[in-house]
Design a protein around this nucleic acid. Structure first.
Lengths: 241, 241
DNA sequence: CCCGATTTGTACGCTTCTGTACCTATCCAG
DNA sequence: CTGGATAGGTACAGAAGCGTACAAATCGGG
């Protein structure tokens, strides 16, 4: 299977798939900003100030528990948005949301966004449907966390990340991946070697290159694809397809 | 900590916490029905016919993967509802939703429900906020699946189930629990012995009795409570508190 | 071009959980 | 009261991953 969201990533698909009139409603309030790696988009239990629609950056939603436990529960790029709680009518969330791959994104003030959603039901519907897809992604993560081996989870994660960047080369350290997957750093090293040994990826210092998407999907053994199919069904494939 | 949703369960809290006028909007369309154990409330990828608000039954949302992999990703009782996708503007979901503990519940036809949501934004807001809580529950499940030991996950699950039934005695087999947690049946047997050994529960054939909620919460080591606190914040404690 | 910082490779013993198997205890219908 | 069905207890070898530790490789600033 090709990338879930197709090649174009000079814009945000979620915004681009709005009808022209709804896009016109949002456009005047969107501001294009540069988002640096590790910068926070939301803090746990703190008021969400801005909603962000990535263009070529990638964000992670991470659940934090006691004793430093943490694990990624959501990944989004030009397919999605931060600040989903706002759409749900809640002003905070217990998750950490931060920029994982630096890049540009459109932001809008939370209050303004909430106001526009209230005025345009079709706008809210659009974002609710995206959140539905994101929730499915989280359920698949829960399934994967409970039932898959490390290298299967790694394969799934690499595919999801690859879907959201333009390059087959991705800047990722084992340490970073270990936090996302909630496993040992050394475990990621072993996992990457397994995938590398099968010719699915190539790993360099701080870089992982995707060589064989189909192979990775097979390696993920069904843990990848459900959320992506739902997204494709609801938001369609990009015009180039 | 006492039960997350307090003692009363002769009604559905989600419905009861609606304003009187919104309750009046829904009431004429609700039908009280008996829901038997194992009966399906939603089938994966099939149109959701009815939305259900449990009174004294409990439902599970289960993600299914390849090779018979399955794991529970959501639990709801008189605090919640089935058919959450409908609120999100989508008519299907990839999850299995079924009755885990038999009992009564109010149901409403999907089309009628969707129509009422469209007419009453405040009604939709109410259910969106519930879904926000349910999503948090799923993120905590993902965290727990990835980072907790079997007996911690078991303790968490028993607490969540206990929140949603009226009795300290719960009809649960090890086999059933093993499916919910996505572990071996024999593993659940060992897990229950650990909790029993600490005096937190008592286990009989097909029955688990909660003896010490606070002890179970400590045993869950932070994996229980986040979603429950959010629910309490948004929907308040029951009037008896 | 050298030094400290970052990243990766590898090893070891240990815990947790699995797959499988088999036996026992309890329940219920006839 | 008995026989089949259901539920639970236990055991064993092995896989998977952990915590920890340390060394090697690579990078970038001075």
């Amino acid at each position: 299977m090709a990338k879930a969201f197709g090649p174009p990533n000079d814009h945000n698909i979620l915004l681009a798939s709005l009808s022209p009139d709804l896009r016109a409603v949002l456009a005047p309030h969107l501001e294009l900003v540069r988002l640096e790696q590790r910068s926070a988009l939301e803090y746990p239990q703190e008021k969400i100030e801005r909603v962000t629609f990535p263009v070529d950056c990638v964000g992670s939603m991470v659940a934090v528990g006691d004793e430093g436990r943490r694990i990624e529960v959501g990944l989004f790029g030009f397919d999605g948005m931060s600040g989903t709680s706002i759409v749900m009518g809640v002003e905070t969330s217990p998750l950490e949301v931060f920029v994982q791959v630096a890049g540009d994104g459109y932001t809008i003030d939370t209050e303004v966004f909430r106001g526009l959603l209230d005025q345009h039901d079709a706008l809210e519907l659009h974002f609710k449907r995206y959140i539905h897809c994101l929730n499915i992604q989280t359920t698949q993560t829960a399934l994967s966390n409970g039932q898959s081996k490390l290298e299967e989870r790694l394969a799934r994660w690499l595919l999801m990340c690859h879907d959201r960047v333009s390059d087959d080369r991705m800047a990722l350290t084992h340490d970073f991946l270990s936090i996302m997957l909630g496993v040992r750093r050394a475990g990621v090293t072993v996992g990457t070697h397994i995938l590398e040994g099968k010719g699915l990826i190539r790993a360099g210092r701080g870089v992982i290159t995707i060589l064989d998407r189909d192979g990775l999907e097979a390696e993920a053994r069904g843990s990848y694809g459900v959320a992506e199919k739902e997204y494709a069904r609801l938001f369609g494939n990009p015009p180039t397809d």
